[in-house]
């Protein structure tokens, strides 16, 4: 997906238990619920705060800074 955000969000669906905490903690509405689990809806809005990653009980969402070109 083309994005102008310097951050890249990855969701590991095999580990995610769909508790919804990542969606609830995102301050920029980057994530949307897919029956509980997250869909990365607006990646360009990500500010890299890591609130989703740090509140994920399942180690299932990670936010990485994109490699500089």
């Amino acid at each position: 997906m083309v994005s102008d955000s310097p951050y890249e969000i990855a969701v590991n669906e095999k580990w995610c238990k769909k508790c919804g905490l990542c969606i609830a903690f995102c301050p920029k509405d980057v994530l949307e619920s897919d029956g509980g689990g997250p869909i990365v809806k607006a990646p360009s809005q990500c500010i890299g705060c890591l609130l989703c990653e740090m509140h994920c009980p399942d180690f299932a969402i990670t936010v990485k800074r994109r490699a500089e070109k």
């Binding site: 238990k17 508790c19 905490l21 009980p57 399942d58 299932a60």
Partner: peptide, 11 residues
């Protein structure tokens, strides 16, 4: 994935 329940704080 671990054995903890969905939303458990232990993770």
């Amino acid at each position: 994935p671990h054995i903890w329940c969905p939303g458990c704080g232990h993770g």
